[in-house]
Design a protein around this nucleic acid. Structure first.
Length: 524
RNA sequence: GACUUGGUAGCUCAGCUGGUAGAGCACGUCCCUUUUAAGGAUGGGGUCCUGGGUUCGAGCCCCAGCCAGGUCACCA
């Protein structure tokens, strides 16, 4: 099959363990027997493990001739009869192999050699047979014929379970994240987490499409990054001889589309921020941003309540979800506090009329690590983060933020110094952020100028002035409500996972030391 | 970035005051026609994260580093 050739890099980059060598030897023996360990043909399947468990016994004529495919997860060989477990996408089912039925003629090779010696745990096979119940009462496929679909060359971590107790669990977080495929194979709960995540996104998309908003795509590579206060990733385009940035938010491009005349646009977007990593932060993360013309932030709060309630019901059939030690209820309406009210509620102090000096002193007294470079708005935000946010477990809207922290939000219609903005807080963390979008181009330019000043004073996250965006706003953007939802954060809550790494298939990790290679090496 | 815990077989882990590296599963060989984390017997498998140091002798003690987890900080 390999015409006498051998891969050149194999022994350079890895040491072959005894078990791997044995599997490679089995691979060669299969080839010598004329069995293709990696066949090309379609393998037709007419059953799954779950379907058989759900429907058998029942109309048993359906189960006289089943055909399914999956990975072998265990084997118990007892001479000329054996049991194995097959795992497909839907779950596991037991298989029964009998030598004289696998091999009705004199030649017992398929059983004695191929099944017993050359097939390993982890191999993918297809089986044909009928369903029955063993003496021990387990639904089982009696195999008449099997086909090797893929030979596995590496041993699988085998997790065993009895009466709810798990033995030899595959738990090392590093290995689980780096080799997520193994995690998915041996830890079935993990598959379910990502199914829930997929349904979350599907449910949100359905909600938005049902309202006739347009799903759009905007650039990831941007000459000027904007829409949030964050440090970007920097890259370079050779032909244009230009520095480009990976987007930190989609906001400014989506607003351009509102200027262009779409009344509702949204995007599920990967955003990138070149900042620290933690169980709440991955360098790339998913955000859904929505902009709707002729609406304001009050209207947007209602949309968020309605959308979230629908999603939670779609996922869990109820509005109540267990998260850690809390029961969270997403039923409408949610509590609403202004930021000043929230701080007063949790600290007993009304800070609304304090000036910057008084605020600084007060914030320090409440345990905020404040320095003189922080303005009034930043102090309020720190105070809120310190004293309020962790206590907000049930979904709650916090409204009316200090203007200094929100250079893209519209000034409050009646409260000086504030903007028309809200965040929804749930389980002590922000899950979305929204405002009545600033569409006054004169004000927007001045806000950018204030950001430039912050940047000159050394704030690495200050926004840069985006002249093209201002040109769009000067053309005229209708009054617009905008929303950003952190999909990963929401997924953490709705799957009851404490870490963002548990809701990302491949969370960012340091490169593995032993496999570290320069990108220009030809092995990549 | 700070503190803290850890890194031993493919997986999960033990390893005494510093004295020849262990168990279970997995893997090899043999026996076994309804078993089920685990049939019986038997055998192989190790850069004890890396590099220094102390010592007659280091998986263990000391120093430095690498990697990972947790907590905190940063993250409008």
């Amino acid at each position: 099959m390999y015409a006498g050739k051998k891969p050149k890099t194999e022994h350079m980059n890895q040491k072959i363990t005894e078990q791997e060598a044995i599997r490679r030897e089995a691979l060669n023996q299969l080839l010598e027997l004329g069995i293709d360990p990696y066949p090309s043909d379609t393998y037709e399947v007419n059953a799954t493990a779950k379907m058989i468990h759900d429907q058998f016994p029942g109309d048993n004529s359906l189960f006289q001739d089943v055909q399914l495919a999956g990975r072998i997860m265990s084997r118990r060989i007892m001479g000329s009869a054996s049991f194995a477990e097959l795992q497909d996408d839907s779950g596991r089912i037991q298989l029964y192999f009998n030598r004289d039925e696998i091999c009705p003629d004199g030649d017992k090779t398929m059983y004695n050699t191929v099944f017993k010696r050359l097939v390993d745990i982890g191999d993918i096979i297809g089986v044909k047979g009928f369903v029955f119940t063993t003496r021990m009462g387990e639904t089982t496929v009696h195999v008449k014929q099997f086909t090797i679909l893929c030979k596995s060359l590496r041993p699988l971590p085998i997790v065993k379970e009895k009466e709810g107790k798990v033995y030899d669990a595959f738990t090392d977080p590093e290995q689980r994240y780096r080799q997520r495929y193994l995690d998915l194979i041996v830890n079935p709960d993990v598959k379910e987490v990502f199914r829930l995540r997929a349904r979350l996104i599907q449910s949100m998309r359905e909600f938005l499409l049902a309202r006739d908003y347009l799903e759009v795509e905007t650039p990831v590579l941007q000459p000027i990054y904007g829409g949030a206060a964050a440090k970007p990733f920097k890259t370079y385009h050779n032909k244009l001889d230009t520095t480009l940035y990976l987007r930190i938010a989609n906001e400014l491009y989506l607003k351009r589309l509102i200027v262009g005349g779409y009344d509702g646009v949204f995007e599920f977007a990967k955003d990138f921020r070149n900042e620290g990593m933690s169980r709440f932060h991955n360098p790339e993360f998913t955000q859904m941003e929505l902009y709707v013309a002729y609406k304001d932030y009050i209207w947007m709060m209602e949309l968020v309540e309605e959308m979230t309630e629908k999603i939670v019901k779609d996922l869990h059939g109820t509005t109540r979800v267990t998260v850690g030690e809390h029961q969270i209820n997403f039923e409408r309406p949610w509590k609403r506090y202004t930021m000043y009210e929230a701080i007063e509620h949790f600290t007993g102090t009304d800070i609304s009329s304090m000036d910057e000096a008084a605020m600084l002193q007060y914030a320090r007294s409440m345990g905020v690590q404040a320095d003189n470079t922080m303005g009034r708005g930043k102090l309020i935000d720190e105070l809120f983060g310190e004293q309020c946010e962790p206590h907000l477990i049930q979904p709650t809207f916090i409204t009316d933020y200090p203007i200094e922290m929100s250079p893209l939000a519209k000034k409050h219609r009646s409260k000086p110094g504030l903007v028309e903005r809200f965040e929804a807080i749930c389980n002590g963390k922000e899950i979305c952020n929204a405002f009545s979008e600033l569409n006054d181009p004169v004000d927007q330019r001045m806000r950018f100028e204030e950001q430039l000043e912050l940047g000159r004073r050394g704030d690495p996250e200050a926004m840069v002035l985006d002249e093209d965006f201002l040109r769009a706003i000067e053309t005229g953007m209708p009054p617009t409500a905008g929303l950003g939802v952190g999909i990963d954060r929401l997924a953490m809550i709705l799957t009851n996972k404490p870490s963002i790494q548990d809701v990302l298939f491949f969370p960012q990790m340091r490169p593995e030391q032993k496999h570290r290679q320069k990108p220009d090496e030809d092995t990549i």
